[in-house]
Simulated scan of single mutants.
Amino acid sequence: MKKIGVLVVDDSAFMRKLITDFLSQHPEIVVVGTARNGEEAVKKLKDLNPDVMTLDVEMPGLTGLEVLKIVMAEQPVPVIMLSSTTNQGAENTLQAIQYGAVDFIAKPSGSISMDLYKIKEELTAKVISASKANMKRIGLTVNKKVSPLKPEVKPVKKELSPAHESLGLNSKKLICIGTSTGGPRALQEVLTKLPGNLPVPVLVVQHMPAGFTKSLASRLDSLSSIHVKEAEDGEILQKGTAYIAPGGFHMLVKPMGTATTVMLETSEPRNGHRPSVDVLFESVSQFNHFSCIAVVMTGMGSDGAKGLEKLKSSGRAKAIAESEQTSVVFGMPKAAIATGKVDEIKEVQQIAEAIMAYI
């Protein structure tokens, strides 16, 4: 069995050794080389031809973002970014995903993390998953004009009108979206195509750690006609608004009087994730006062499949899965399709249109 060759790039010798040691312990992975700066990384990429690269976001000289742009232009390989959890680190990480990084790992405690062992299993799993990434799909996305983090002209958002009142118990529809690896790009593709007068709310579970979902929501809000925000516990769902589950919290829905509210909780992770798509879907399936359009997009693993079965058993759900052709990782959509409960399989650029057709 051919092993997955990894090039480890970090300006810290300690971090390079730690990451190398962790990855080398897995029987499917071999570290083919390390690089201490961006210039060395670009050279070794050409010499060693790795299957995956781990790349530190913050480096002196050529930054991780600059290295990533060179890699994607000259020799595209799956790249996993290692990021700090600061606000700037989160924004840089989302920019890296826009430039073509497959996924990222948040360092537990800064640029030199003595406790990196906490993310050993996650790092190993993401390297294996990245080795199977659809780089053709990433290339198609990256070759489009990259949207700036804060565009000069923000889409005009329609003012809240009577059509945008709180989603009451007699309301008809709710959109629920679940995604993971490759999700930020997929969410941008879908949410930016939804109209500003969208007559239903949107609930989104994107697998991300705490500190990153707020930056993601802010970025998507700046690009979309609908309002996009990080969900807050107890807030009333509004039509024309997308709520992204904050990292570290499961997101559920809860009736309160004539309204429907968001409930955030920290029960055990499901499928290794918190937030979990299954938890959201199962929560929505318990209430018969609205139907649901459930969407499962790119991501590794099977989160969302069991929840989708419960949603469909209620008889009040339509399900859309992203196609293999456009998924960066065809794990979650494949698992959803395997349940036999998916109504339509669509390429990511067609999903918003399919959602609107059901509405």
Rank of each mutant, 00 (worst) to 15 (best):
F104C: 00
A163V: 12
S129G: 10
E122V: 12
E122G: 04
K126M: 05
L169P: 08
S161G: 10
Q98D: 13
G38V: 09
A163I: 13
G89P: 00
E159D: 13
A125W: 03
S83T: 05
Y117G: 05
P108M: 07
G139Y: 09
M53N: 00
T34M: 06
I119N: 04
N170A: 13
M135G: 04
G139H: 08
K107L: 13
Q75K: 15
P60H: 01
P60N: 01
V42E: 02
T93P: 02
P148C: 03
K107S: 00
H164S: 15
V77F: 02
E58N: 11
S131T: 10
E66G: 01
R36Q: 15
K172F: 04
V153D: 10
V146E: 11
S131N: 08
M81A: 00
I138Y: 04
G61K: 13
Q75D: 11
T124R: 04
L45A: 08
K144W: 02
K145T: 14
E121M: 07
M114F: 14
S131C: 05
E165G: 15
T86Y: 10
D103F: 10
K154A: 09
E91I: 05
L149E: 13
A163E: 15
V57A: 02
K126G: 08
A90T: 06
K107M: 02
S111E: 14
P78Q: 11
S129C: 07
V57C: 01
S171Y: 09
V127C: 09
P50T: 08
K157F: 05
P162G: 02
E39M: 11
H164K: 15
K107W: 03
E66A: 09
P151I: 11
T54V: 08
V156Y: 09
K154Y: 11
S171C: 06
L82N: 10
A106L: 03
T54G: 07
M81S: 03
V31S: 02
G64I: 01
V146L: 14
T86G: 06
V142D: 04
T63F: 08
P108D: 02
V30M: 10
L116R: 06
L65A: 12
N134Y: 08
T54D: 01
K126N: 12
Q98C: 03
G100P: 03
E40R: 07
K136G: 14
K144P: 12
P76F: 05
V102P: 02
K144G: 08
L62A: 13
S171W: 01
Y99I: 05
V156P: 00
V142H: 02
N170D: 15
K43T: 06
M72I: 07
K46E: 13
Y99C: 07
E74T: 14
A35T: 07
I80N: 03
P50D: 07
V31W: 00
S147Y: 05
N37V: 04
A90I: 00
K107N: 04
L149Q: 12
A163H: 14
V142F: 10
V42Y: 07
N49L: 13
L123T: 06
E152G: 09
A90V: 05
N143Q: 13
S84V: 10
E40L: 09
A130H: 08
T86S: 04
A35S: 11
L45Q: 07
K46W: 06
T124S: 06
P162I: 08
G89I: 01
L94D: 00
E28S: 15
S83C: 01
